[in-house]
Design a protein around this nucleic acid. Structure first.
Lengths: 242, 242
DNA sequence: GCCAATTCAGGACATATGTCCTTTCCCAAT
DNA sequence: ATTGGGAAAGGACATATGTCCTGAATTGGC
């Protein structure tokens, strides 16, 4: 992590994401921009958190590791997203490990300033509510989905959610570098089993393998397999009530 | 559902749960008390919500039903808990079905009043944040746990979390009426498989069956099976930062 | 271009879990 | 008491998924 000393850039992001009222005057001096390189850990499961981060550029991977060493990828995040919000509100240790997948830029604020100047600031509270309810919503879907459907269906849904709508879209686009084993950990299965299901999809003509890359051949087929159940992504802010 | 016309009782609950500042003067006239009988549905997945409810007495079951008819029990809730909070903030249809397990009493407020008089009211926002982050936390644990461990471990954890600390505690206490098939749906497995695992636990001397009731015989044994992973319950408000 | 080291795909087998069906047992209505 | 219905437990089998290992493919260094 390195701090980026560029108040102009910071202002730019605040404007671009309409965060000016969220981080009002008293908080401004305590905001900083931080850069992370792919593979950098932003925070680690179990540690005491210190900063609230707002992701404004790049892609993050959120995962948890069991005591036996198994890894479960919980989500991939793109802007606008917040890291450390739940921990801030609850005062608990960091829940999941967060790692930069691409070069990442985040706005960071120390909890103490957030608390001093923000704890009664309605726009900030509303912003946090908005973000956290969205997270809750996504996680809730994810929980039901993972518990109710077999890997086959989850993979179909996953492929639909990470590839774009072109006639032939492949996994691993725009340098997003989602490896197959990450995908397996995300779906909550083993790498081995993922391969098995992919092979089956190949046979059914739904996807194709091309040197380590999966190419979606038949979105409709995948859709009918997945049913209406799609891994929900950050679909923007939607209509919030606040 | 029937409305309970008793302002004194309402005041009593507000005091008991320290909700007086959360629901401040302008909101008070729009609060009502509602009673539900076991089996009553408080709200149904997919509907348009209208009320925010605060559970002040009784026990609720939250579940979701897939289009194929499979049911997944997401949680059981006891006071203090809020229903409809995520939907209120996000303006979305009801996510999960909520059913009374015991006689239930809840404080209800229509969204429109909440919005009119509460959308900038910091104590209310803080309250919602507190509740929702707690929900998020529990759900997050639940997701990882369910995806990472086999039914055996989940059941051990579940038994520990629903039975009290006595030397011999049985499932199905204090009229809580958690049926085995509810338990199966909660753990995310089939009734058949749950039985299989219970049988195995019996053989290992961990639990005993007595006419449809499960009696925990060896908490330590269950603990070592479950590892440190326990289904998190509402462990009170904890230390919140707000 | 060649080799060692690493990643990747898949075979073989074990285990976990689901589905369907049968048996038993309990209770309520007659 | 008799009987029908339905919960509760478990048998038999099919399927889904995990683990371990092997051989092919790929890559980076020389």
């Amino acid at each position: 992590m390195k701090e980026i000393q560029d108040r102009e850039q910071l202002k730019h992001y605040l404007r671009a994401f309409q965060l000016e009222s969220v981080f009002h005057e008293p908080l401004r001096p305590h905001l900083s921009l931080y850069g992370f390189e792919p593979g950098d850990l932003i925070c680690t499961q179990g540690q005491a958190p210190e900063y609230l981060y707002v992701l404004v550029h790049g892609k993050l991977k959120i995962y948890t590791t069991s005591s036996e060493g198994k890894t479960l990828v919980l989500s991939f995040k793109t802007p606008l997203e917040v890291i450390g919000d739940v921990e801030y509100v609850r005062g608990t240790p960091i829940l999941n490990t967060v790692e930069a997948v691409t070069p990442v830029c985040m706005i960071g604020v120390q909890y103490r300033w957030l608390h001093n100047y923000g704890k009664d600031h309605a726009p900030l509270l509303q912003f946090l509510l908005d973000i956290i309810t969205q997270k809750f919503y996504v996680k809730s879907n994810s929980l039901s989905f993972n518990l109710m459907y077999p890997v086959e269906v989850r993979l179909a849904s996953y492929l639909l959610s990470v590839t774009s709508d072109e006639s032939e879209s492949r996994l691993e686009e725009q340098g997003s570098a989602v490896s197959l084993s990450d995908a397996a950990n995300f779906i909550g299965t083993s790498y081995r089993h993922l391969n098995r299901v992919i092979r089956q999809f190949c046979i059914q003509g739904l996807v194709e393998r091309r040197k380590g890359v999966i190419v979606v051949k038949d979105r409709n087929g995948l859709s009918s397999l997945a049913g209406h159940n799609i891994y929900e992504h950050n679909q923007g802010k939607g209509e919030t009530r606040l």
